[in-house]
Amino acid sequence: MAETVLETEGLTMRFGGVVAVDNVSLKLAARELRCLIGPNGAGKSTFFKCLCGLLTPTDGRVYLRGEDTTGWETHQIAALGVGIKMQVPSVMDGLSVHENIWMAARRHDDTAGANDRAEEVIARLALGPIARSPLARLAHGERQRVELGIVMAADPWLVLLDEPAAGMTAEEVARMGEIIREMTRTAAVLIVEHDMQFIRALASTVTVFHRGRVLMEDHVDRVMADPVVRDVYLGKQA
């Protein structure tokens, strides 16, 4: 059994009367690939934000590689080796693609090393032609890709991707799938996605969120065949 890199215990996040995340206990093994699905407002993004310290959970605990990180500062959690791609791309708009990725790599390397790492990531993500363009000028799909590059450059062992394929072309989605597979060689990857095709292609375990709770957790095929899941999620989506 591989080491557990992420574990939550009864994680709960309330916003006033809204319980966005409700008593979620979830475990993720090293190098595991897991998809998180659920209708809009199910609490997936909020769950991610609790994991990376952007939100402090109302209740429950988060363990990263066995360490209790509940209530830690965002930068402390990130520095452990956790990378996140947000649902709404969180990038440095006025800076170039290279500068964005360089800054991510610089956290764990010196200036020159970070430069090399940035070049590497830019080549891997085929961002070369736009490497010197400011992010503000890029299309949504490109910005998503750059944010993925920002995550990759820091070599995290836990990767959280919130809707990474949204707004991408079919070709880009295929390439994204390939890159995610590659990431699982060194990192556990947790992905929020709506695109069932994409999830099937990744053939991963799926955790279904519904109203802040975990409804089900199983292989993608069995989840898709489940009548309750179809009812709360797939039926409405189609």
């Binding site: 520095a79 990378g83 990038v91 006025g94 800054m103 991510a104 610089r106 820091a154």
Partner: peptide
């Protein structure tokens, strides 16, 4: 310098720079 470049990053997007592991 790296310090200056990261400071500019903070100006651009504080949340992102924190998510990179820098103490804002």
């Amino acid at each position: 310098s790296s310090f200056g470049r990261i400071a500019i990053g903070i100006r651009e997007n504080e949340e992102r720079v924190a998510l990179l592991g820098y103490d804002i």
